[in-house]
Every structure is written in structure tokens, then in C-alpha cells.
Simulated scan of single mutants.
Amino acid sequence: SESGGRHAGAAEREPAMRAGAGGDGKADEMIRYEGRLRVGVEEQEVGHAHLRKTVETENVTTSVPVSHEEVRVVREPIREGDGHKGKISEAETEVTLHAERPVVRKETVPVERVRLETERVTETKEVSDTVRKEKIEFDNPKGDGMPGEERGRRGPRH
């Protein structure tokens, strides 16, 4: 422990501390930085959906029953004693005939309401990018054979 003054061990370490100074803080330490991906989302307009109404014509065929009147002659003999007396003359009578015919009437009726709605669908997308990171290695001038990363972790404590 140092008590305000320098002892011999501290004086020997001083050149190494100055040599390792990177301008990032104290002379005997470095700060290592890594790039990180910060992934978020932003909303953007990707298109428009439109409703468009057009008019088209189609032929529709349907069947409808129709009736009409036809004339037939019915002859009935008159029995004696029915009390009909008459004279021979010319005469005429008529019957009005009726027939149905199809009548088409067009009308416009509502059949369906159509609207656009949006629905949010969430899916997972993979995002890839490159990041940079710093690596700090320890050079041991004594050459004790330890790899760079391991030496950095086991270097002399100050």
C-alpha cells in the first residue's frame, strides 16, 4: 500500500503506465467499446386499398306462368216443356276474352354493405447488420508464452 510517497516498485511501473495510456482515462487502463444493434420499428405507408363500384349488365331469365281464355262452343238440347218460346231471327252475341301477359318492373334494392377495414398482423422478421468491437490484447515483454487474451486477464495487479 502506498502512503503518499513512492516506493521503488511504483517507480518501476511508471514507464509502462505512460506507455499504455490511450487518452481514455487513467494511464493504466483502457475502455473497450463494442457496437450493438438497437432494433426498433417505424411505421411507414406501403400502399392504398380502394373500393371501386362499377356497373355491369347481365341477362336474367325467369319463368312466369300466364293464362288466357279460349272459346269453345257448348251445345245443350232444350227439353220440351222448358217454356221457351221464340221466333226465328238473326242475332249476334259476343264474349270478351282475357289473357295474362308478363309485366317486367325493375327496382333497385340494397343487397350488401361493403367497407374496408385494416387488421394488424404481427410477424417476426430477422434483422442482420455488422457491428464493430474493440479487442484489447496484452503484450508481455517477458515472453512467458501466455496467449494475448489470457495475458490481458492475468496481467500484474496494481
Results as ranks from 00 to 15, higher is better:
residue 133 K to S: 01
residue 114 V to A: 12
residue 19 A to K: 10
residue 11 A to S: 06
residue 105 R to F: 06
residue 119 E to Q: 12
residue 50 H to R: 15
residue 23 G to L: 13
residue 102 P to S: 06
residue 44 Q to D: 03
residue 13 R to I: 05
residue 18 R to Q: 05
residue 140 N to K: 01
residue 6 R to M: 01
residue 116 L to W: 01
residue 24 D to W: 08
residue 81 G to P: 02
residue 78 I to P: 00
residue 133 K to M: 00
residue 91 A to G: 04
residue 106 K to F: 07
residue 65 P to G: 14
residue 82 D to R: 04
residue 57 T to F: 08
residue 16 A to M: 05
residue 40 G to R: 10
residue 73 V to M: 11
residue 66 V to S: 06
residue 108 T to P: 08
residue 37 L to H: 08
residue 17 M to V: 15
residue 76 E to C: 10
residue 43 E to L: 06
residue 35 G to E: 06
residue 138 F to Y: 07
residue 70 E to L: 13
residue 141 P to N: 05
residue 101 R to T: 01
residue 38 R to H: 13
residue 108 T to R: 13
residue 110 P to K: 06
residue 25 G to H: 07
residue 23 G to Y: 07
residue 36 R to D: 04
residue 13 R to K: 13
residue 5 G to S: 00
residue 66 V to F: 05
residue 78 I to A: 00
residue 123 E to T: 03
residue 35 G to L: 00
residue 43 E to Q: 14
residue 102 P to F: 06
residue 152 G to E: 01
residue 18 R to V: 05
residue 30 M to P: 03
residue 101 R to C: 05
residue 118 T to Y: 07
residue 34 E to N: 00
residue 81 G to L: 03
residue 153 R to C: 04
residue 12 E to K: 04
residue 39 V to C: 15
residue 71 V to H: 01
residue 134 E to R: 02
residue 72 R to S: 09
residue 28 D to E: 10
residue 24 D to N: 04
residue 116 L to K: 02
residue 147 P to H: 01
residue 11 A to I: 10
residue 126 E to I: 02
residue 116 L to I: 13
residue 42 E to R: 08
residue 131 V to M: 03
residue 34 E to V: 01
residue 55 V to D: 07
residue 146 M to P: 00
residue 143 G to N: 07
residue 88 I to Q: 01
residue 155 G to T: 10
residue 95 V to M: 14
residue 103 V to D: 10
residue 120 R to E: 06
residue 111 V to R: 11
residue 52 R to S: 11
residue 63 S to N: 10
residue 7 H to E: 03
residue 115 R to W: 09
residue 158 H to V: 15
residue 142 K to E: 09
residue 61 T to W: 14
residue 51 L to C: 02
residue 27 A to F: 00
residue 135 K to M: 03
residue 157 R to V: 05
residue 11 A to N: 05
residue 143 G to C: 12
residue 103 V to R: 15
residue 103 V to Y: 11
residue 144 D to V: 02
residue 53 K to D: 14
residue 127 V to F: 06
residue 86 G to A: 15
residue 66 V to A: 14
residue 133 K to T: 01
residue 114 V to T: 04
residue 142 K to Y: 11
residue 64 V to T: 13
residue 117 E to D: 12
residue 11 A to M: 13
residue 54 T to H: 11
residue 6 R to Y: 03
residue 53 K to H: 15
residue 146 M to W: 04
residue 108 T to I: 04
residue 72 R to W: 02
residue 30 M to G: 00
residue 6 R to S: 12
residue 48 H to S: 11
residue 94 E to T: 12
residue 152 G to P: 00
residue 125 K to N: 00
residue 120 R to Q: 04
residue 27 A to E: 09
residue 29 E to P: 05
residue 128 S to D: 01
residue 35 G to S: 05
residue 32 R to V: 10
residue 5 G to L: 06
residue 30 M to R: 06
residue 152 G to F: 11
residue 142 K to Q: 12
residue 149 E to R: 13
residue 45 E to I: 07
residue 93 T to E: 15
residue 29 E to I: 15
residue 158 H to P: 13
residue 18 R to W: 09
residue 72 R to P: 02
residue 94 E to K: 09
residue 26 K to L: 15
residue 152 G to R: 09
residue 42 E to N: 08
residue 152 G to K: 03
residue 120 R to W: 01
residue 157 R to D: 10
residue 9 G to N: 09
residue 156 P to T: 03
residue 92 E to K: 08
residue 84 H to V: 07
